[in-house]
Design a protein around this nucleic acid. Sequence first.
DNA 1: CAGTGGTCTAGACCACACC
DNA 2: GTGTGGTCTAGACCACTGT
Lengths: 253, 253
Amino acid sequence: MTTSGELVSPLDGIVLDRASPVPLYYQVAQYLERAIESGALSPGSRFENEIQLADRLGLSRPTMRRAMQHLVDKGLLVRRRGIGTRVVSPTVRRSLELTSLHDDLSRDGQRPGTKLLSLSEVPATAKVALALGLPAGAQVVEIVRLRSAMDQPIAKMTNHLPLGLIDLTATNLERQGLYEVIRSSGIRLHSATQVIGARVASAAEARLLGETRGAAVLTMQRTTYDDSGAVIEYGNHIYAASRYSFQLSLLAG
Amino acid sequence: MTTSGELVSPLDGIVLDRASPVPLYYQVAQYLERAIESGALSPGSRFENEIQLADRLGLSRPTMRRAMQHLVDKGLLVRRRGIGTRVVSPTVRRSLELTSLHDDLSRDGQRPGTKLLSLSEVPATAKVALALGLPAGAQVVEIVRLRSAMDQPIAKMTNHLPLGLIDLTATNLERQGLYEVIRSSGIRLHSATQVIGARVASAAEARLLGETRGAAVLTMQRTTYDDSGAVIEYGNHIYAASRYSFQLSLLAG
DNA sequence: CAGTGGTCTAGACCACACC
DNA sequence: GTGTGGTCTAGACCACTGT
């Protein structure tokens, strides 16, 4: 443990493997990240300058800089010319641990579960066809799932995918989650856009989610793209607002 | 205009200014970004390799790489080893133009407006004190604003800030927006965390936002941090869900 | 002034994709 | 093979901060 503001040499225990396929800058970045998360480097502790750090490891300065820049981009380090490099405060760090393309449910002891309600091939509605960039009425895969936490229903998730892109079966969907199935079929995800809104639940939705009549639900539509710009998946989801909210963090830029 | 897949040399008109304080890699990145956004580089067009591009501009390869990496991080370019560099499709690009720390309203012809309802010094409630890291009952600045679009109310925004951090006046708040005031007072923003939820509007909220009784509202709490980990601002906002939704884009990684 | 990070150069070798 | 991007080196000079 170090005290705040102290000058530290944060790389004492590291062993670099120059034969590894993992890049050196990444080995260093991961080591630093673990040291920061574990609290071995306390908030506000100041690093030695990058040239000394590079020398200690027998690395060139650009390689050392790249490792540190990786952590700056992640929000874990702050660097200022003429001043030095410092670790951001743990409050901020915790707030940055959220957010991803995936669900935020699987933290804590929430016992998350997903039940596959249906997996079928259906003609695309106008909205789905538009989102997937297909002609109206084209056949698409439809997945309907019920997400729960602590054995209570949380969300109804409906996804549509183009036919033939991915080999979806009930078994791998129940084991892996949709995004893992997509990735493991060799598709390179690029980006996604989400629209988050709210409305009052319909009677059927309220029943399914265990809410009372007139309750508010969060709605989310997501379109996911691959490297080539093709639409991989369109999702339309509703969440029980009394038991679920979206958490996300943003880095200033 | 180029055709899809064509090999292009995307730097023909660029003039570099080596005397400028703007870094060379950034001048190149900005030129490329403008060329992409303007459509001069069409979707899927493939770049010359980075060594040739660097040579054309009299730059070293690392500098050219840095410019391109900047656009990869922004989601505008995709690079693959052994293949080359390509411009992402315009559909994906448009979807990436959203998202920021700020409101998404100021696009299109939405005539956005903000009315300052109150600016005062109040004792912090328990929740506000916790968020700002102050003792309960400490004095804080409270701002309440009504956001509108096309002369219809959209959101009620309530912000609390520590005393003395920023010189807030009614005039500069109405001119500039809260975040601009914060930045121009020399504070380096680092990150923010948001929680987005939904609930049914209270009678008073429905009246203020022009909604009917029982309507759903979107809720958002945001905590904003500076470089040193101090809390700069805590916001608690409600949005008329029938006329507003959050749009955001995510890059895979 | 001395110390820090920010930028830039001119090479080298390697891993991967396609032919 | 050939061509691509990915990694790494060993220097250099500059801009900003605080003494």
